[in-house]
Structures are given as structure tokens and as C-alpha cells.
């Protein structure tokens, strides 16, 4: 229960917070996406770090090793990574389209453009 015994979680927490901060505080769409992917990356550590066993080795069965790390988190995170990159790709595609339509990828500029358009309409 010591604080030090949980340092792997602190890293996760830090990354997560930083990622989230970028997402919320930054107006640039691409930047938001990068923040989002950092946010997602933090989850990898949350899952994988506890899967490590001291003295264990990678979960590829080979003669001479008896203690392996937990493979299940790895599998889950593989999937999570894929999901992350899929989201990133889609988000970027959207950002590109937005740029084509609005000529900007700054959130406030876009919103201003929308307001303007609405007023004109």
C-alpha cells in the first residue's frame, strides 16, 4: 500500500491528465487529436504495467522459463492500440475536410465562421 509501490500508476495518471488537458485546452483540431492519442496511450500503461511479474519474462513459451508475464493485458492493449490509430485516422480525415470547408483548423475560428454564416442566413 505504499505510495512508491504504485509509481507505475502515477505515470499513467500523469500522462492521462496531460493528454486530457491538451484535448480540452487546445483549440487546434490536430493538436486535440494528438492529445487524444496520448490520453489513450496512458491506458496502455494502466493495463500492461500490472501484468508484469517480477522475474517473469515475455509470454512466449520456451523451454527453460517458468515464470511469464500476464498475456491477457497485452492482447487487450493490442486491440486498444488499433482502436486508437483508427480513431486518429478518422479524426485526421475529419480535420482535413474541416480545413477544406472552413479554411482553418482552429476551433474558435471555425465557430466564428459558423456564427457569421448563420447571421448572414
Amino acid at each position: 500500500m505504499s505510495v512508491l509501490g504504485h509509481y507505475n500508476y502515477w505515470v499513467t495518471v500523469f500522462l492521462m491528465t496531460a493528454g486530457l488537458y491538451i484535448v480540452i485546452a487546445r483549440g487546434n483540431l490536430v493538436k486535440k487529436l494528438i492529445g487524444l492519442s496520448i490520453f489513450q496511450t496512458s491506458v496502455y500503461l494502466l493495463y500492461v504495467a500490472p501484468g508484469k511479474v517480477i522475474g517473469g519474462t515475455a509470454p512466449i513459451i520456451a523451454p527453460g522459463y517458468t515464470l511469464y508475464s500476464n498475456p491477457l493485458p497485452h492482447v487487450l492493449i493490442l486491440t486498444a492500440i488499433v482502436v486508437g490509430v483508427a480513431t486518429l485516422a478518422l479524426g485526421l480525415a475529419l480535420a482535413v475536410r474541416i480545413h477544406e470547408q472552413y479554411g482553418s483548423i482552429e476551433e474558435d475560428e471555425i465557430l466564428a465562421a459558423d456564427r457569421e454564416a448563420e447571421e448572414r442566413a
Binding site: A49, G51, K52, T57, A58, S69, H74, I77
Partner: peptide, 8 residues
């Protein structure tokens, strides 16, 4: 990798 998650 250091955490043994080679595939990941």
C-alpha cells in the same frame, strides 16, 4: 518492451 509486452 521493458514490461515484457513485446507484441504490444
Amino acid at each position: 518492451v521493458a514490461l515484457d509486452a513485446v507484441d504490444v
